[in-house]
Simulated scan of single mutants.
Amino acid sequence: MSLHSISDYLDDLTMSRRRGPKNDGYYSKLPTSDQGFTDAQFLVPAQKIPWKAIILATMLLIAGTSLLVFGFMVVMGHISIQYAGRMWPMIILGALMFIPGAYHIRIAYYAYKEVPGYSFDDIPEFE
Rank of each mutant, 00 (worst) to 15 (best):
82 Q>T: 04
79 I>S: 01
35 Q>P: 08
91 I>W: 04
12 D>H: 08
115 V>H: 09
47 Q>Y: 05
124 P>M: 04
36 G>E: 09
116 P>L: 07
36 G>W: 12
104 H>K: 13
19 R>P: 01
61 L>P: 07
61 L>M: 06
93 L>G: 15
88 W>M: 11
33 S>P: 13
73 M>K: 10
47 Q>W: 03
93 L>W: 03
115 V>W: 12
21 P>T: 11
102 A>G: 05
26 Y>V: 14
84 A>M: 10
33 S>Y: 14
76 M>K: 12
6 I>R: 09
68 L>F: 02
42 F>W: 06
49 I>L: 08
100 P>M: 07
14 T>L: 14
123 I>F: 02
92 I>F: 04
101 G>P: 03
116 P>N: 01
70 F>V: 08
97 M>P: 10
42 F>R: 03
62 I>F: 04
66 S>L: 15
51 W>K: 02
93 L>V: 14
31 P>H: 02
39 D>N: 00
7 S>K: 06
74 V>M: 04
12 D>F: 15
47 Q>S: 10
42 F>C: 01
61 L>H: 01
7 S>H: 02
42 F>S: 00
7 S>T: 04
69 V>C: 09
58 T>G: 01
63 A>G: 09
103 Y>T: 09
75 V>K: 11
32 T>C: 03
107 I>V: 05
75 V>E: 13
35 Q>A: 13
115 V>D: 00
107 I>N: 03
95 A>C: 08
25 G>D: 01
28 S>K: 15
88 W>L: 11
124 P>Q: 02
109 Y>D: 00
77 G>A: 00
45 P>N: 04
81 I>L: 13
34 D>P: 11
125 E>R: 07
73 M>C: 01
110 Y>W: 07
95 A>S: 14
56 L>G: 00
52 K>M: 11
20 G>Q: 00
106 R>I: 07
51 W>F: 14
70 F>L: 13
71 G>F: 06
6 I>S: 08
1 M>S: 04
60 L>I: 02
49 I>T: 12
114 E>K: 15
30 L>R: 12
115 V>Q: 01
118 Y>W: 01
14 T>A: 10
100 P>I: 09
97 M>H: 03
55 I>V: 13
28 S>G: 11
1 M>L: 04
110 Y>S: 11
96 L>P: 09
25 G>N: 08
18 R>Q: 12
28 S>H: 15
118 Y>S: 03
121 D>V: 15
57 A>Q: 02
51 W>E: 13
93 L>Q: 06
50 P>K: 02
66 S>A: 14
54 I>Q: 03
44 V>I: 12
50 P>A: 12
110 Y>T: 08
75 V>R: 02
104 H>E: 06
117 G>Q: 03
116 P>M: 00
36 G>N: 06
79 I>N: 00
78 H>L: 09
56 L>D: 03
63 A>V: 15
65 T>Q: 05
102 A>F: 07
61 L>D: 08
